[in-house]
């Protein structure tokens, strides 16, 4: 929120991306594991929002703790140099959860 850096050029490389996905299936252990492992590959700060709760999807237990069920929606938000790739990759996993 507050600019705390003396580097002025980094801001231009930062991007914020956000997408909302409707779950085709409950977010159980297997997709939660996939999601956490995928999230760890990116340098962007990623958030997963569901029913008013926001968690860091690199934590598999936090993902499972959301208790997100089929037909509910989740919002993935990423901020950083690879934000778009992160959101795309995570949305793909959620959209294809079985």
């Amino acid at each position: 929120m507050s600019p705390n850096s003396d580097t002025t050029t980094t801001a231009t490389t930062m991007a914020i991306h956000e997408v909302t996905v409707v779950l085709p299936a409950n977010l159980h252990a297997r997709p939660a594991g996939q999601l956490a492992r995928a999230a760890a590959r990116f340098t962007s700060v990623i958030q997963l929002q569901h029913s008013g709760r926001t968690i860091n999807p690199t934590g598999v237990l936090a993902v499972m703790g959301l208790g997100a069920t089929a037909a509910s929606s989740l919002t993935i938000r990423a901020e950083g140099p690879d934000a778009e790739q992160a959101v795309t990759a995570l949305a793909d996993i959620l959209a294809n959860a079985e």
Partner: peptide, 24 residues
């Protein structure tokens, strides 16, 4: 075990895997 496996599979080092398990 679940948290440790995901951390290890993500390529985390020993310290990070220990922390992931403890944070569970």
């Amino acid at each position: 075990a679940v948290a440790a496996v995901v951390a290890a599979a993500s390529g985390a080092d020993l310290k990070t895997v220990v922390e992931a398990a403890e944070e569970a």
